[in-house]
Design a binder for these strands. Structure first.
Lengths: 371, 371
DNA sequence: TGTAATTTAGTGCTCGAGCACAGTTGTATA
DNA sequence: TATACAACTGTGCTCGAGCACTAAATTACA
């Protein structure tokens, strides 16, 4: 008979797990719990002797406040502004807003007055005007879902002057000093998309990239980075695929079908399309209605429309960037910074989920995880 | 100038968000909060008239208990047993145990006496003996990480007789009636692995499968399902790849290198290896030390060793099955069932994460998500 | 040295669900 | 009608962090 083990571990939480409370620290330091609280939250009005005694105890013990009790006993009031591109149902930005809302629900005792300002992400003038309005407002903090570089830098400068903390979601902007950002690594994202698309098409096959055209001839920050990652992968791996660009107009959507049909007329063989924004479903639908088959597709974002196309087999790989998680942690981080003066991790890169028609049914967005 | 919008939404939580408390329901129904509590937790000792009045109010309002308050005001005591294959550091089962522990931390006020029994997953006798010990114990509930079908069915029968609820993690066993299970859909998992491996190798290329040999000639439940999914994919898509089996012995590990070298001697061209258990790193290391290059690999589980091999580029795709999530929700579900008599969703399939060397650095296991 | 101003420390209330215990009905039986 | 016993219901305490309010100690200054 073989050797075998049978480990028996007794974890009796009533004995072990003696969790340290604020009052325990107070007793150890020979002060009252009020004083401990003042030291831990930097509220001042504490003598040096008391402060040092408490700090010594804090070094020794590993105090972790009971988050549940914290959440119910808060009484603060804050005014927070959120600005992002416009929100449409089932789409990317809605998920970010959902995440933000969930964070507020977690701290339901905190009175937060939330103001949401949206702008047209394809129109720099809309963004500029919205940002000007925001700059004039009173607030305790700001969450920014940025698109245009220059405008965002300007807004951030004003916030810096007024010493108002701000956090980025979706992507971070250079030359600003945010409290933190929550975003995907867009460069790696593009790099990975290149790897995925080239793995499922023949060498030297053509690849078309679908890209939005913006007012003022400027692309969104994230798209630029993704494209850089994409081309860098091809270069690094000595891929000789021909890259075609498909323009995509938001202001004149009637032109888009034309762009596509022009492409498919001029190029006989387009075995692969990569969409660096969340409009993958648009091309998937075009291909389906025009009975164009055998085109491999790698697209971004788990929007309702994209998921549908993935399940139908029109899209091969869909990349998710956890928008609910981004929104949730942006707001959570902000609140904990404002309330508890908690130290903040500045750079926060979210997961890049790879979804296929096989594993999409098991995908849990952050909503499911939380409740 | 283009049209653009600037939506301003005021979400003032002090006005809106009037959250309904237990005492509000009591007032509406004209009873005391104690009675409402009794109705909601099915504790009995309530007159029909009071019960009906409260149930009517509950239908109208959308009451959600404040989870934070719930967590701090519990006073129950429970004895729970966990049985899984042996745990080794950085490996699959450790993650499941971590998840279980985290759930206990979330309900730190509940006094849980936890007993862990592990068995050798490659030795049916070890399992049998461990299960016999467990069957004799007193407990309020049981969490099972099963391997052997027959033995598990026997244990479950005894639990059914004693009316002790049990939950499966990792995989569910047929002919049992668990309270719930948390596992990946192993069939789909194998199916997806077949899709991934065939997408990165030439048609008709050979594929080797690495499989453990068990005492009593029986494979683990999950591995059987994965293999079924794997072969079904190949059949369905008319793949003509030749499938080779590599045996893998745990009892005589010195034989494994021999098995591998024998394979690579007999077959000149093995461009792909699929590992349906979490030992992918073992083959990756063999290939590396023997300077065998160009072999594509798809493996299971985000163990420390596998992640290392993925980052080095030895493994191409690694499939994760959220072990922390499984453990966490198994214990959480159990506690909420015992304490609150909460209704339980029986079938719970976890996410199948696809990891590559590009997105592995951003992967958050459940530990990170929670804290 | 006495009084006001200021700093520092401590006490006690808040949040809401859970739950033990006391208190109040109603019904049955001597 | 008195008493026992059940069935039911309401009251009040618990958990621990936050924070307001009060009390005490210290300093400032006439």
């Amino acid at each position: 008979m073989l050797e075998h083990s049978c480990i028996k571990i007794n974890i009796n939480f009533s004995f072990m797990h003696k969790k340290i409370r604020i009052i325990d620290i107070a007793k150890m330091a020979g002060v009252s719990k009020g004083t401990v609280d003042r030291v831990m939250h930097n509220r001042g009005n504490v003598s040096d002797s008391a402060r040092i005694a408490i700090e010594k105890v804090l070094e020794k013990v590993n105090y972790k406040p009971n988050i549940h009790v914290s959440a119910i006993s808060l009484k603060s009031r804050y005014k927070i502004i959120v600005t992002t591109p416009e929100v449409s149902p089932g789409a990317y930005w809605e998920s970010i807003h959902n995440g933000i809302r969930h964070a507020l629900e977690e701290y339901e005792n905190v009175r937060v007055e939330l103001q949401v300002f949206t702008y047209n992400q394809y129109d720099v003038y809309s963004c500029r005007e919205t940002y000007e309005k925001i700059a004039a407002f009173e607030m305790d903090a700001l969450i920014i879902g940025p698109t245009f570089n220059e405008e965002t830098v300007n807004l951030c400068k004003k916030m810096d002057e007024r010493e108002i903390p701000y956090i980025f979601v979706d992507s971070a902007i250079e030359d600003t000093s945010p409290l933190a950002f929550f975003s995907a690594d867009h460069y790696v994202c593009g790099y990975m998309m290149a790897k995925l698309i080239t793995s499922i098409i023949p060498d030297h096959a053509n690849i078309a990239i679908f890209q939005a055209v913006r007012t003022g001839d400027r692309s969104a920050n994230s798209t630029i980075l993704r494209k850089k990652g994409f081309t860098d992968y091809l270069e690094k791996n000595r891929c000789t695929n021909l890259i075609l660009s498909i323009p995509f107009s938001v202001t004149a959507p009637e032109d888009n079908e034309m762009y596509l049909s022009r492409l498919f007329r001029s190029q006989r063989d387009i075995p692969a399309i990569v969409v660096l924004n969340s409009r993958g479903y648009f091309i998937a639908n075009y291909l389906a209605t025009n009975h164009i088959k055998g085109v491999k597709m790698v697209c971004m974002d788990l929007t309702t429309a994209n998921i549908k196309a993935l399940k139908k087999g029109q899209i091969d790989y869909l990349i998710g960037q956890e928008p609910e998680y981004q929104g949730f942690y942006a707001m959570k981080t902000l609140l904990e910074y404002l309330i508890f003066k908690k130290t903040v991790t500045k750079k926060n890169y979210v997961q890049l989920d790879i979804l296929t028609r096989e594993n999409i049914d098991f995908y849990k967005n952050f909503n499911n995880i939380m409740y």
